[in-house]
Design a protein around this nucleic acid. Structure first.
Lengths: 234, 234
DNA sequence: AAGTCTATCAAACGTTTGTTTGAAAGGAAC
DNA sequence: GTTCCTTTCAAACAAACGTTTGATAGACTT
């Protein structure tokens, strides 16, 4: 990977993520990257190809920063679900140092473009497969559609704390009710879902040693985990 | 309301909803509305004010089409939750005749603009209050934050079938696993949430007469309830 | 040392953008 | 019929956009 291309992709992320594709100008991106105006056309052909590359770049960055947990094999399904939820929240709901990785990917999810298929294949599919295997183990004998719906319920709970953030902040006002740590959030979603499935949530709550280990690893890698306020513009 | 303004707002909805604010041109909107190019500047000042008006217009349209249920008072909390979920899904997850109402509002939710505060006040807040009262009745004695988290879990499940639709279609491929009716979806989310809360889901499932009545009313008002594929462009 | 390929640069290109302008048209009031 | 106010219209405006151009400099090959 050329150095100029890296600089362009890094500079493009926040600009594509914040005001969107159309509002982002190649002039601003190039200026931010410290390159010439013609650099994008030269290296990527045109703006649209460059955007697709930026989405892939964001997906790689997001996966590198918060990798999927690799289970040793002796965790219970409940523990694995808790770890999955925690990982997912750290990927999408938490603003890490460069916050635009997740922002750009979430934009791609709601407003899919040409980059969507690849995004699903590289980023979404692995998470989906992992969750489906956990859910299948938690509710054996159920139909595939019921497991699919259950997975959708779990994912929806996680994603809501990204997509609904602006509205929830507006809704909560000065109340501290929406101010909650990622760990508490993961615990709630896990217990909520386990109770819904019918498994014993309290049973899973007792032995979460593996969760604590991974949580520490994520904390160390990502530094600040607090939520940020966001207010967009037109 | 002037007739020209109505025509402009109606024409603007799908154009603002589909490619977004920046990509929408006043020329195309005016041409679609059959008005002169200067009409938007004349009646609304500038494009940004006009966009805010379009969002308000969409919110009114969406609330008129799928009004909140007015409970007679003798429904159980479980029935009320089921009705609420069904209403919410019909508002956000289903593409009605003019599909752009919900599209524009969901865009406003994820990418908030100046129109967000008013959108929350008029559209989101009433739904939130209703859900919170139901949840409070379902889990008495719990802290406000736990009720808030529970409400977020329920709302997140509903919204996911709008925000995650493109990705879920891509994920499901040719499989029919993601092809599900709104009624079945509402039933799943309601049972899932009731089980999570700890209330008896089967108890609520037995007597859903009020639900059936309202569902018929919604069906009659909205006609086609099937999901639509959507594939965006840059 | 001459030739070749690649990357960068300032400048300019043609288009499209939101907005403004001044004239023209339509009523309502008197 | 004259005046006044609102609305519509075609035309033009300046600004910003993505992209292209031709020149320049450097690195590598022969």
């Amino acid at each position: 990977m050329d150095e100029t291309q890296s600089k362009l992709l890094d500079a493009a992320g926040p600009i594509f993520a914040e005001p969107g594709y159309r509002a982002a100008t190649v002039r601003e991106i190039c200026q931010q990257a410290g390159t010439n105006l013609a650099a994008i056309s030269y290296h990527f052909g045109d703006k649209e190809n460059f955007y697709v590359a930026a989405v892939q770049h964001a997906a790689r960055g997001c996966m590198d920063r918060v990798p999927l947990p690799d289970f040793s094999g002796n965790e219970t399904a409940e523990e694995r679900l808790h770890l999955f939820v925690l990982t997912m929240l750290n990927r999408v709901a938490v603003d890490h140092d460069p916050a635009w990785h997740a922002q750009l990917l979430m934009r791609e999810m709601v407003l899919p473009t040409r980059a969507c298929a690849e995004f699903v294949r590289d980023y979404v599919r692995p998470m989906h497969d992992m969750l489906m295997s956990i859910v299948s183990e938690l509710m054996p004998g159920e139909s595939e559609q019921r497991r699919w719906l259950t997975a959708a319920s779990i994912v929806g709970q996680c994603l809501h704390h990204r997509f609904g953030r602006a509205v929830m902040n507006e809704l909560a006002g000065d109340s501290l009710v929406a101010d909650i740590s990622v760990d508490a959030l993961a615990r709630h979603i896990t217990e909520f879902s386990l109770a819904a499935i019918g498994a014993s949530a309290s049973e899973a709550d007792g032995r979460l040693t593996a969760v604590k280990k991974t949580r520490r690893r994520i904390d160390a890698a990502s530094g600040e985990l607090k939520f940020q306020k966001q207010r967009g513009s037109l």
